[in-house]
Design a protein around this nucleic acid. Structure first.
Length: 649
RNA sequence: GCCGAUGUAGCUCAGGGGUAGAGCGUUUCCUUGGUAAGGAAGAGGUCAUGGGUUCAAUUCCCAUCAUUGGCUCCA
């Protein structure tokens, strides 16, 4: 007998050689049906593996990510089996489960291409194979045997993967006629997979390197019940409705013009109003935190960027220099504000008593992003950073860094961004040639970030290789409607630019010292931030940000004059209000303005004119009764105040 | 930049080898209304651009541009 310990610390005894699925069955038949994988002493395994020693276990169902992982990973194998059956000669690369589903990278036989039209046939084959309920069976073989097997099969990707593995046992998984190199774990059999949807097809480089061959990647998702698939598809539809590109068009926020150029957004009046509100909000916060405004030009002499190191790093892939009538004179569209700000710092001598200085600018920068990478407002070629650079002494660094964290968190809190990931982006541990600066400075900078975040009690993930070329970063990542992650806020510690620009201050010892620089942008860029804000709110912006806070709807054209009078009065009270004076019935006006997501609809007709009032209707919430004009104005002011000030603590 | 898809009216889309359609929007007129679509008439398109095949191309083929799903990149 062996002792099995469960997550709640209860212990049961079983015969040695029991399997996970049998343990589940011993608890309840329902659990046995739902369980998908098992963790045994910290090791995720198949349910069908035998347990022969005292162990602590956890059974995973669809509700755990470990359970989904096994399910989707098995689905990837099932898809590969189906594809091998339909396209003989296909070579398989890798096929993992991902956060939402799975994919497989394939090298299609010469002359064969797969398009979305072929996906239903693969889905059908997968379901057909799933119904056979073939077991996923695990087999341990030696490295030599594995190499031999895949060489015979002519699968160079698998042989390459195996060659890189340590000597020793290698595991294969088989189901039906399909064998794959795999660590597992997998479902007991293919019958668990009841519903499959192949979502898209894309190119992906072998091992993620663009110098390698491009393979065909098929993304899919699968479920244990047909109904769950249907629900998931509805969810995807809902997410599409929140897409900032769609809402941006519907609400007249921004547009693009081919004639202006790709990736160069045009902010329409309503979008500009929204953005201006955000900028004013941040300006107020920054003023309270001791930031000083600066303004710099959109271009800079090429030498500026040679000094900063940006030219060597990005020059070839950027907008190319602007020439002047003078021989050999070249200017760059600015891709960064920091070199300009360094020159501002340098313009006057600084004492240690002057530090920290914090220069802030909504600086528009231009970067030649690859054409395939442009995406709505989230990835563009011209954008405005809510940039600031803090120049401080070493003894001030950590404290300044923590203050910036406070600003970012305050902003996220005010805007109800609750689901964000805080990522510490450090140097690549192996490839260091892409970074500038001394190891010593890098270590100091990296430690400063690690200490500041831990003292702030921030939950962070660490990513190596994600640092900027001049220093490590703390990034705040937020997801869009479709689950894609975008970097918004960023805080970066930099010892290098002060060196390159020979920045100095005079210390209390009357000696020259080098300041440390913090780059920071809480929004990241106005473009990207507004995009994510649109997706978070589905266009229902908080009252203090909405371009129009209220729209006045006259019952008929007879009341247009009164409507305009009300609009004037409210404007004087700083309420942003418009009048819908179209010759339409009131029902139509209500519908149209509800769809435009304007927070308050004010209906005015004979009764309101007589009593000098408005009939208030809240967006999505119906009739709120009648108020005097003054009452409504103070109601709006109160609501705005609550939204942006109560969260201060 | 790479692989795939897409490009028809301001927007959302249908159509299809014989030079075009719907709904919404817009314009004009009727209507002047009480909490999510009142009615009528009209305007609006070199079917992304450039080549090719064909008696004939918006439709088929190729290229370019743009958009888009990914990949790589992202100061």
């Amino acid at each position: 007998m062996i002792k099995i310990t469960f997550p709640d610390n209860s212990v049961r005894e079983y015969d040695s050689g029991i399997t996970g699925i049998e343990i589940a069955k011993s608890i309840s038949n329902n659990l046995a049906k739902e369980v998908l994988s098992i963790t045994v002493n910290g090791d995720i395994q198949d349910l069908t593996r035998t347990i022969t020693t005292d162990s602590s276990i956890k059974l995973h169902t669809w509700d755990d990510k470990e359970g989904k992982h096994a399910f989707w990973h098995s689905s990837a194998h099932l898809m590969a089996e189906a594809i091998e059956a339909i396209y003989p000669g296909v070579k398989l690369a890798i096929g993992p489960s991902i956060e939402s589903g799975f994919y497989y990278d394939l090298d299609m036989p010469e002359g064969t291409t797969v398009t979305d039209k072929d996906l239903p046939a693969i889905e059908k084959k997968m379901i057909e194979l799933a119904r056979l309920k073939n077991s996923y069976t695990r087999e341990d073989i030696t490295k030599a045997e594995a190499l031999n097997y895949f060489e015979n099969k002519g699968d160079q990707y698998k042989t390459e993967l195996i060659s890189d593995l340590e000597d020793g046992t290698i595991t294969l998984y088989k189901q039906g006629n399909f064998t794959d190199l795999c660590r597992g774990p997998h479902l007991p059999n293919t019958g668990y997979i009841k519903a499959v949807k192949l979502l898209s097809i894309a190119g992906a480089y072998w091992r993620g390197n663009e110098k390698n061959k491009q393979l065909t990647r098929i993304y899919g998702i699968s479920f244990p019940k047909q109904k769950m698939l249907e629900e998931h598809m509805i969810l995807l539809e809902e997410a599409k409705k929140r897409d900032h590109r769609k809402i941006g068009k519907e609400l007249d926020l921004f547009t693009f013009s081919q004639r202006v150029g790709q990736g160069l957004p045009l902010w329409l009046p309503k979008g500009a109003m929204l953005r201006e509100r955000l900028e004013n909000f941040l300006k107020r916060v920054q003023k309270e935190h001791g930031y000083l405004p600066v303004i710099t030009p959109h271009i800079g002499n090429k030498e500026l960027y040679v000094t900063s190191g940006h030219y060597a790093k990005y020059g070839a892939d950027s907008f190319q220099p602007i020439n002047t009538p003078a021989e050999g004179e070249e200017f760059l569209l600015k891709p960064m504000n920091c070199p300009h700000h360094c020159e501002i710092f340098k313009a006057r001598p600084k004492s240690y008593k002057d530090l920290p200085v914090r220069y802030a600018e909504f600086g528009t920068v231009y970067r030649y992003e690859q054409s395939g990478e442009l995406h709505g407002l989230t990835r563009v070629r011209g954008f405005t950073q809510d940039d600031a650079h803090i120049f401080c002494r070493p003894d001030q660094l950590k404290d300044e860094f923590k203050k910036v964290i406070d600003i970012v968190l305050y902003i996220f809190k005010t805007l109800n961004f609750e689901n964000f990931v805080t990522q510490i982006s450090l140097r690549d541990q192996v490839n260091r040639e892409k970074y500038i600066g001394s190891d010593e400075n890098w270590e100091k900078a990296e430690n400063a970030i690690i200490e500041a975040t831990s003292e702030k009690g921030l939950e962070t993930v660490v990513e190596y290789g994600e640092a900027a070329f001049y220093g490590p970063k703390l990034d705040f990542m937020v997801k869009d409607a479709l689950g894609r992650s975008w970097q918004l806020g960023t805080i970066q510690v930099d010892y290098n630019l002060p060196e390159r620009f020979e920045l100095e201050y005079v210390g209390s010892d009357d000696q020259k010292h080098r300041p440390i620089m913090i780059h920071r942008a809480p929004f990241g860029s106005m473009e990207r931030f507004v995009a994510v804000l649109i997706e978070h709110t589905a266009g229902k912006f908080p009252l203090w940000l909405n371009p129009d806070q209220a729209v006045i709807l006259p019952i008929s054209e007879k009341y247009n004059d009164y409507a305009n009078k009300v609009a004037d009065m409210l404007s004087k009270e700083d309420v942003r209000v418009i009048v819908d004076s179209r010759n339409e019935k009131i029902g139509k006006k209500i519908r149209d303005n509800e769809l435009m997501k304007i927070p308050y609809l004010l209906i005015v007709g004979e009764q309101e004119e007589n009593s000098q009032s408005v009939s208030v209707r809240k967006q999505g919430d119906g009739d709120k009764g009648t108020m005097s004009i003054g009452e409504f104005a103070s109601h709006i002011q109160e609501e705005v105040k609550k939204l942006i000030e109560v969260k201060e603590n």
